[in-house]
């Protein structure tokens, strides 16, 4: 569960180029809820995600995850609960490390990285089985550097990596923005399946209204650093795609 209370975020405070990115925003996302966040550029979507992940700390307000106040926790500290998929496929994976190394690090997201060799045959087999489920034929390439794969493949693997360790919250920042339509579909469906399978609390930022309509159990539209619309599951299923286009008029 994520609880945001009266969040303020100001960039370049006191300077000529001061920007108020989030303005007194409060939001609670329940366990197992899959919230989709839409909104124009500059409406504060990415800042919201960064405040939750700890990549940015808020100027005022409080962030609570599973009843723990994490307002001042840094990103590497909040990784105990949170897994992330970035907009840029290059940000979520290490290109010069092998797929196996990437998965090994992901499997240790919530624990310390010790001076022991953790990659063995059993671990390799476990990773191969998970990757085989994607149906991309990557299971025999786990020794290859991540950088040799396409953006879509890397995003799909990043999703798998996010559930290698205990995960409560999955943050998806426009995961398909850099992908072609076919890869986008694979990534979105993989995300949806994993969220349901592991009962994750998820937050997806997207500019694709079709995805926003199709996926998720809650729809949030942001504008000028706050929440403009908040639509629950029952209303969301009735929502027509055409009506959504009108929101951006």
């Amino acid at each position: 569960m994520i609880e945001l209370k009266n969040i303020h975020k100001v960039f370049n405070k006191g300077e000529a180029n001061e920007v108020v990115a989030l303005h007194n925003l409060s939001l609670t996302i329940q366990k197992g809820e899959f919230a989709v966040v839409i909104g124009s550029n500059g409406s504060g979507k990415t800042t919201l995600l960064n405040i939750i992940s700890g990549a940015e700390l808020c100027s005022a307000g409080s962030v609570t995850i599973n009843h723990t106040n994490v307002t001042r926790y840094r990103e590497y500290h909040r990784s105990k609960w949170i897994a992330r998929v970035f907009q840029n496929p290059l940000s979520g994976t290490a290109p010069n490390l092998s797929i196996l190394d990437n998965f090994r690090l992901a499997a240790l997201r919530t624990t310390s990285k010790k001076l022991t060799i953790g990659i063995n045959d059993a671990f390799k087999k476990q990773v191969q089985e998970k990757i085989a489920a994607l149906g991309m034929g990557l299971e025999n390439k786990v020794e290859q550097p991540m950088g040799t794969l396409s953006g879509g493949q890397r995003q799909a693997l990043t999703l798998l990596m996010s559930v290698m360790d205990n995960t409560d919250i999955l943050l998806l920042d426009e995961p398909t923005a850099a992908l072609d339509p076919k890869s986008s579909n694979v990534v979105m469906q993989t995300a949806d399946t994993l969220i349901k399978q592991y009962n994750l609390t998820a937050l997806l930022i997207t500019h694709n209204l079709k995805d926003a309509n199709q996926y998720g159990t809650r729809l949030i539209q942001m504008a000028e650093g706050n929440i403009l619309r908040d639509i629950n599951s029952a209303e969301k299923t009735k929502l027509q795609l055409q009506n959504m286009f009108g929101w951006f008029a």
Binding site: R74, S79, R84, L105, R109
Partner: peptide, 27 residues
């Protein structure tokens, strides 16, 4: 040996993809 351990993977990832490494719980 150090570079092959879990700690070593975190070391190698730090230079390769800092954003990913931080999101995976590495300072």
């Amino acid at each position: 040996f150090i570079l092959k351990t879990d700690f070593g993977i975190a070391m190698r990832a730090t230079g390769d993809s800092p954003s990913m490494t931080r999101s995976l719980g590495v300072n």
